[in-house]
Design a binder for these strands. Structure first.
Length: 635
DNA sequence: TTAGGGTTAG
């Protein structure tokens, strides 16, 4: 923290004091001196710029009012609220015997800047000087401190009898919420006799932040008065915890309730649209922003471009990107990642070079995009060179995610030994996600030996997740080793590991429809299955052979075929075909990697129907057209 | 005569 020594008493007045700005009446500027303290107080409250504050500060010094408690307090508060914590601190340090107002104010200033230790330091100094804290002091200091310090403060709050104060209690709820101690937050909250909208929102935030969305929703529904903050907390809670559809539905309710969304709402809902791949809703939101005076600053614009890219419309993403006047590295990263996600690796790398050319500093996220781009195009040499440059040229230490990108890149290119070496020589402990990437590569190249070695070690270290088990099981199944498959299935059952169900979704008329394999829940199931039958007829007529070897279960070939026919991807596609106009593109989002049988079948469907089909899976986009896919069957 | 402080979303 910097503390600029500002005014050596008496401070020289700033270069030119414009007396009219200091005057209370524009006609008698010069004769108004000496200014009375209350006039100065009014001026201080009206001052908007640091320059004006400095002028008033100079006037205080000239008139011997620089120890005036109220004026000093107002000036100090104004400095820190205008972003000059340094001036604020300098003023505090030069004040003799600060009173409780000034102490609380400087504590508040430090807390607002996230400098919790400095705030605590002032607090202890205050106690040492014999100044008693009050409820205002506690509500200020609680907002930045750690849960450990907060617990000590909590006991002082009780000891000094401030625990019935609404603001202090709200601060305590927030303290425990920030520290992840939902139980304690709840305890404080439940013992509040009086609850304000803010304290209710603090508790709501606590639930929503920690993924307790059901509890949050109960509280939210009980709230009689709802402001934009609590709508935002609830919507963002859904968006951040894998429930983007709920976020979108709630946003519609918010509009119906005539609540006015702000930038925060927009950012959360755009994220939800991106997760869902809900392009229609995203577009609607874009026009809502434009028609409702919501400022398209760099944050909103980046969220928009990210939404477009995740919803499959890279053209729109690029349009938004090009219109951002003050692009920061986050905007560049989003665009680079967008290109990588769609398999436009060259564009991603060119954009990266351009970003370097204009002198913007890359971040670790930039390299996720860059290495991802190399991975999707199989650019092994380039990938290595970027990976090494991270540390050597950009001073960025590769994180486990970057190793993951490299393992993907090497693994898919068939360089399994190199990938394995890289993982073994890492300084950090590999996590199941990283092993999963390597296992995936083993499966892709049919290297059962390495796959087994990795999987067994994971199982041995209790690190096997459902993905690991499924991959290994897939490998066994592909080799017809049903005994191995059965062993894995038993292992999964015994350890309670559950397979994440594959789910595909498609947006039609602003609503997102989700399908699981073999799903019969959709109101139009009958039509969907009729369409599926027709689709199977097309496949057969084109001599398509189902990839029954990827079916996990030890069942007959016919049953295997049948299980492939009702994969979630195909159900979503069938619904898309019956519910959208002929010739329009179909966009599908899958939560896992697209299955290779569905991939092959979709290529054919794109040819037969003449439709463009865009499929986003967990890893990347596939653009199907005329019988081929943009990934070049390399994914 | 008067005058000043605190809590929730990102």
């Amino acid at each position: 923290m910097s503390s600029t020594p500002l005014f050596n008493t008496p401070a020289p007045p700033p270069p030119s004091i414009n007396r009219t700005t200091l005057s209370c009446s524009s006609t008698t500027a010069a004769t108004n001196f000496p200014l009375s303290p209350n006039k100065l107080a009014v001026l201080l409250d009206k001052s908007n710029t640091i320059r004006q504050l400095l002028q008033i500060h100079a006037a205080l010094l000239r008139h011997g009012l620089h120890q005036h408690p109220i004026l000093n307090f107002k000036l100090q508060r104004s400095y820190s609220s205008r972003g000059r914590l340094d001036y604020s601190v300098a003023l505090f340090k030069r004040t003799l015997n600060p009173n409780i107002f000034l102490y609380t104010s400087i504590i508040n200033a430090y807390a607002l800047h996230g400098l919790s230790l400095e705030a605590l330091f002032i607090y202890t100094r205050m106690l040492f000087e014999g100044v008693q804290p009050n409820e205002f002091t506690f509500s200020s200091i609680l907002k930045s401190c750690s849960i450990e310090h907060g617990k000590m403060l909590h006991s002082q709050v009780i000891k000094l009898g401030f625990d019935s104060d609404l603001y202090v209690k709200t601060g305590l709820v927030d303290l425990y919420a920030r520290g992840g101690d939902v139980g304690s937050a709840q305890l404080v909250f439940e013992r509040m006799l009086e609850k304000s909208l803010v304290s209710l929102t603090a508790m709501l935030t606590c639930y929503a932040k920690h993924g307790e969305l059901e509890e949050a929703r109960v509280l939210f529904d009980e709230m009689v008065k709802k402001d934009v903050v609590c709508w935002n907390v609830m919507i963002d809670g859904y968006a951040q915890h894998g429930m983007p559809n709920e976020a979108l539905v709630l946003f519609r309710r918010m509009l119906a309730a005539k609540a006015r969304p702000n930038e925060i709402t927009i950012l959360a809902v755009l994220s939800a649209c991106g997760q869902l791949g809900a392009l229609e809703s995203g577009r609607w939101l874009h026009s809502y922003i434009e028609n409702n005076d919501i400022q398209v600053n760099v944050r909103v614009a980046t969220a928009l471009l990210d939404m477009y890219s995740k919803c499959g419309s890279l053209e729109d993403a690029r349009l938004v990107f090009d219109r951002i006047p003050d692009k920061d590295v986050v905007a560049w990263n989003s665009m680079i990642i967008g290109y990588a996600l769609h398999g436009f690796s060259r564009d991603a790398l060119e954009l990266f070079q351009e970003m370097c050319r204009i002198g913007l500093r890359s971040t670790d996220i930039t390299f996720i995009g860059v290495l991802g781009a190399c991975g999707h195009a199989g650019l092994v040499k380039e990938g290595w060179s970027f990976f090494n440059a991270m540390r050597d040229e950009y001073d960025i230490e590769p994180k486990i995610e970057h190793y993951g990108c490299m393992v993907n890149l090497l693994g898919r290119a068939g360089q399994l030994e190199e990938a394995y070496e890289l993982v073994k020589n890492m300084k950090m402990e590999p996590d199941p996600v990283l092993w999963g990437a390597l296992l995936g590569a083993c499966r892709l190249h049919g290297n059962l030996d390495m796959g087994e070695k990795i999987a067994e070690s994971l199982v041995g270290h209790n690190l096997a997740n459902s993905g690991t088990c499924i991959l290994l099981s897939n490998m066994y199944a592909a080799k017809g080793n049903w005994e191995g498959v059965a062993r894995i299935r038993t292992l999964m059952k015994d350890s309670g590991v559950q397979k994440e169900p594959g789910c595909s979704s498609i947006e039609v008329n602003n609503r997102v429809h989700e399908f699981l394999a073999g799903d019969l829940k959709h109101p139009k199931s009958k039509e969907i299955y009729l369409m599926l039958e027709e689709m199977n007829g097309w496949l057969k007529a084109h001599g398509y052979i189902p990839q029954t070897d990827i079916v996990l279960h030890d069942i007959g070939d016919l049953q295997k075929e049948q299980s492939l026919e009702v994969h979630s991807e195909k159900l979503a596609l069938a619904y898309g075909l019956i519910s959208t106009q002929h010739g329009t593109p179909i966009k599908i989002v899958k939560n896992l990697r697209v299955c290779s049988d569905c991939h092959a079948a979709t290529k054919l469907f794109s040819k037969i129907t003449g439709r463009k089909i865009v499929m986003r899976d967990r890893n990347r986009f596939h653009h199907f057209a005329n019988g081929s896919c943009s990934c070049g069957d390399y994914w």
